[in-house]
C-alpha cells in the first residue's frame, strides 16, 4: 500500500493507483473531460489538475496520470487549483459553448462569465473517441491529423474505411457533441437545439454515419 496525504488526510491506496482514482475513491470530486475509466489516461483536458508537493515548492500535475507516491502531499482544491481550473473551464466555454457537458461543468464550478472571444468549435480534441475506437473496439478507424490549432480528428486520408464498423461508440463517448444545449432562447423560451442537430461527424465522414439508423448523435440529443 502507498500512504500519502490527500487534502491533509492520511490515506492509503494500492500501488499503481492514480491520484484521480485515489481522490474519487475517497469521495473527492475532481472534474475531467478526457478521462474514462475504461480507457487509458491521456492528460489532455487539464481539468483534473491537482497541486502536489510542499507549499512553496509545489506544482500542478494531472491527477489522471500521476501515480500515488509514498509521502506525497496532494491538494485537490487549493486556491491555485481552483483558480486555474476556473480559467480552464472558462476557456472551454468560450471554445465550445454548445456542449451541455461543458455548460454543466461551468455551473458546478461557479464559472459565471466568459471573458474570452467566443468560438463555436464542435470538438475539444479530448481524444476519447480515438481511444475508444482503438482500445475498446480495436478499430483504429479514426485518429488525429495536423498539429496545434489545425489539429482535428478524422479517418485516414479523410475517407470512409471499412475499419469503421459504424458502432457509434465515438459519438456515444464524446463530451462535446453528444448533447447540445444552448439554454432557453430569447424568443421561444426553450432551447430545442437538439431538434435541429446535425451530427458533426457528417462534416468529416461524408455520408458514412448516415447508415446508422437512428443516428446516435440525434438519439443522445433527444434524451438530453
Amino acid at each position: 500500500m502507498i500512504n500519502f496525504m490527500l487534502n491533509g488526510l492520511d490515506v492509503a491506496v494500492e500501488k499503481g493507483t492514480t491520484l484521480l482514482e485515489a481522490a474519487r475513491f475517497y469521495g473527492i470530486e475532481i472534474p475531467t473531460l478526457c478521462h474514462n475509466e475504461g480507457l487509458s489516461p491521456y492528460g489532455a483536458c487539464r481539468l483534473c489538475l491537482v497541486e502536489i508537493g510542499e507549499p512553496g515548492k509545489s506544482r500542478l500535475v494531472t491527477s489522471c496520470t500521476y501515480p500515488a507516491q509514498e509521502g506525497l502531499q496532494v491538494r485537490t482544491h487549493s486556491e491555485r487549483v481552483v483558480k486555474t481550473r476556473k480559467v480552464i473551464i472558462e476557456l472551454y466555454l468560450a471554445t465550445c459553448p454548445s456542449s451541455k457537458t461543458i455548460q454543466d461543468l461551468a455551473s458546478r464550478y461557479h464559472v459565471t462569465r466568459v471573458r474570452f472571444r467566443r468560438k463555436h468549435d464542435d470538438c475539444i480534441l479530448c481524444g476519447l473517441c480515438i481511444r475508444y475506437c482503438n482500445e475498446q473496439m480495436q478499430g483504429k478507424a479514426i485518429g488525429f491529423v495536423n498539429r496545434g490549432v489545425e489539429r482535428r480528428i478524422t479517418t485516414p486520408f479523410n475517407r470512409k474505411f471499412e475499419e469503421c464498423r459504424l458502432c457509434g461508440g465515438c459519438i456515444y463517448i464524446c463530451p462535446a457533441c453528444q448533447a447540445r444545449c444552448q439554454g432557453p432562447q430569447e424568443g421561444s423560451g426553450v432551447c430545442n437545439a437538439c431538434l435541429n442537430l446535425s451530427p458533426p461527424c457528417l462534416d468529416h465522414f461524408g455520408d458514412a454515419m448516415c447508415y446508422m439508423d437512428p443516428c446516435v448523435a440525434c438519439e443522445q440529443g433527444r434524451k438530453g
Partner: peptide, 13 residues
C-alpha cells in the same frame, strides 16, 4: 503557437 502539438487544451487553446 505554430509549433504547439495541440495535444493539451491549455497549450493549444
Amino acid at each position: 503557437n505554430d509549433e504547439s502539438c495541440g495535444r493539451c487544451f491549455t497549450c493549444r487553446e
